[in-house]
Design a protein around this nucleic acid. Structure first.
Lengths: 205, 205
DNA sequence: TTCGTTTTCAATCAAGTGATTGACAAATAG
DNA sequence: CTATTTGTCAATCACTTGATTGAAAACGAA
């Protein structure tokens, strides 16, 4: 049932660094399994096997399955903070540039890191019952909301967006729209077209 | 481990009808457990116990756990088709009435049947891996999309909504927005405010 | 080298877990 | 009234699953 041994052999590595690598390999393995088969299909044995270690070793690094899952949640938040679509503007971005970048990020994740959305879905469902995960996800949502709100506020101030825009409401609409779009059906083409229309609704005149 | 026996005693009931009732009780029990603890916490034993029957009886009605879950998916679709918020208009509804009814439905489910959304989330996550469930959910989405699109098209035709509205894009925006709003954070107040702003964006002038 | 600390694993536990079996009762057909 | 189908359950199977144990390496400080 073994798969890939640890990709970074602990050869030229301090003892401590090797431990960190093992910890990370376990989280990463759990992340992948959750993406593939959900929490429903998450088994500690398989996580350990993918990371190339014994179950007991998994329990050495993570007290319980729950602790491991919490580790995955943190890893997910870190991924969202780190990974972004390549910038589509040069120099100082206008509010419209930033709005488009927002949409581009969503497509970038869907195209290149679909597992991030898959795991986020799983986490969102679990958040109803697990306060630790709810915390991580709420923090993530809040920071995303804030950045969208800032873009809109700046855009209204400099005349890019409609002067009568309800910035808070528009932020809700944009974030809910993006959350809902990464769901089951919406095609890339539909998403593009919807983004263009949203832009049209937001722009002044 | 027993809970409620079947609420409709098979006294004055034909054999066939009693069978249907048992079948329904099993689906309903599974539905509730999925809402409470997700697929992760769904155990055939507990489903049987809640429906007041033996595990073997569950397996008499549903070949496998999967078949039971498919039954829950069908039940969910049926619920969405059946349950609606009380009508907020009298007589012949205008496109604006229908749009508002659309928003009212979303709040109605969230307020009175939250388990419908909880189970839908679980199903959506599972749909990635289960073609039968994907089918049910896609049918549901399509029919919802169609009805929103019809409202918008009528509204553009009669001058309620902006003449330059991209109906297809707007439909995507509205459905994605509503899907995304029934997620984790958005409060009733935020939802109301966002709906008002959306209405403002759609209306002519 | 020595000794305590950190890390790893084979073996095992106890509690599930979906599914089956075979017997038995209740309803219905002939 | 039989004979057959339909519905039900206690008991059990074969296997899974999260977690633990106790011993043995690997390591680093003294």
């Amino acid at each position: 049932m073994e798969t890939t041994k640890e990709p970074t052999p602990p050869e030229a590595m301090t003892h401590r660094a090797a431990g960190d690598a093992r910890r990370h390999a376990l989280v990463r393995a759990a992340f992948e399994i959750i993406a593939e088969r959900g929490f429903e299909g998450l088994r500690t044995r398989e996580v350990a096997a993918r990371a190339g270690v014994n179950i007991a070793t998994l329990h050495y690094y993570f007290m319980s399955k729950e602790a491991l899952i919490d580790g995955v949640a943190d890893y997910l938040a870190e991924q969202f903070a780190t990974l972004h679509a390549p910038l589509e503007y040069t120099g100082d971005p206008t509010p419209l540039d930033l709005l488009r970048q927002e949409f581009a990020d969503a497509q970038f994740y869907a195209a290149h890191y679909p597992s991030m959305y898959e795991v986020t879905h799983e986490m969102a469902v679990r958040a109803d019952r697990d306060p630790t995960i709810r915390n991580v996800l709420e923090r993530l949502e809040r920071s995303w909301n804030r950045s969208v709100e800032d873009i809109l506020r700046d855009g209204v101030a400099d005349g890019t967006f409609r002067a009568d825009l309800d910035v808070v409401a528009a932020t809700t609409i944009l974030t809910c729209f993006q959350r809902g779009a990464r769901y089951l059906v919406t095609s890339d083409l539909d998403f593009d077209r919807a983004c263009a229309e949203l832009e049209h609704w937001l722009l002044a005149q």
